[in-house]
Design a protein around this nucleic acid. Structure first.
Lengths: 125, 125
DNA sequence: GTCAACCTACTAACTAATTAGTTTTATTGA
DNA sequence: TCAATAAAACTAATTAGTTAGTAGGTTGAC
């Protein structure tokens, strides 16, 4: 038997989504160009990955002349939310307090920073 | 070309680690029994996964009579820290504030809960 | 001593993920 | 028109991950 296709973005998938979020609609060529800045990658590799992203529903595409133009269906915020939820359930028994505790321990974040954030959130609501 | 073996715990791996964290040292039989409570799983499947966990360095084993007894090498806290750091870098541009913001938006966590946590952390230091 | 159970080692099957080459098709400029 | 070019479609190779069957050895019970 075999594994299920993961719901979460894989590394490669995320690389492309990152570019779509950054640049908005992009052709395969654009994406390949942007990715190549980090690490050389074949055009056809990018094509394949874009096709998979579309199959998985993370991206959309339309034809413009010869080329396919891809567009993110999931927003960056949604992706963050989903990844965070996943982590929360998988590692922290769905306890946001536990996660917050680890975050405070591990990073240099301070309660006063959080208070400022909370205020900002309250204001924007 | 093919993919790299992931540093992060996979789903299956985590299931076993979870049991090792819960129960401490466990034989394959123990682990299989505990896993079966959730979802039927073949004994040999568990064996294979334990072997892989050991290969990856996440678990240790020793022989006791005929059986192998497995033990987690990484603590649950370390795993949490590592997963959290991973999420932080991958999705939140290494900004703990951004992550905290999403956590507060998404969950029902309250500042006063965090204050209690902070107090606890300060006391135990 | 034999037999059942128990356990590991080996093997296998199959999908996902990653990377990229080859083939086909369509556009466009000379 | 026709060749160059660009892009998609198709194909392929390889490793990871998941699940489990089979073979073979130990050992304890009777």
């Amino acid at each position: 038997m075999a594994r299920k296709r993961s719901e979460q973005l894989t590394d490669g998938e995320q690389g492309i989504m990152e570019i779509l979020w950054e640049r908005g609609e992009s052709s395969v060529k654009d994406i390949a160009g942007a990715l190549a800045a980090e690490k050389p990658v074949a055009y056809t590799t990018v094509q394949t990955m874009c096709k998979i992203l579309a199959e998985k529903g993370h991206a959309d595409f339309r034809k413009e002349g010869r080329a396919f133009i891809y567009r993110a269906r999931m927003s960056r915020t949604e992706a963050r939310q989903s990844a965070l939820k996943n982590l929360l359930n998988r590692f922290f028994g769905s306890s946001p307090e536990l996660l917050a505790q680890h975050l405070m321990r591990e990073t240099d974040i301070e309660l006063k920073d959080l208070e400022a954030l909370q205020k900002k959130i309250d204001e924007t609501d």
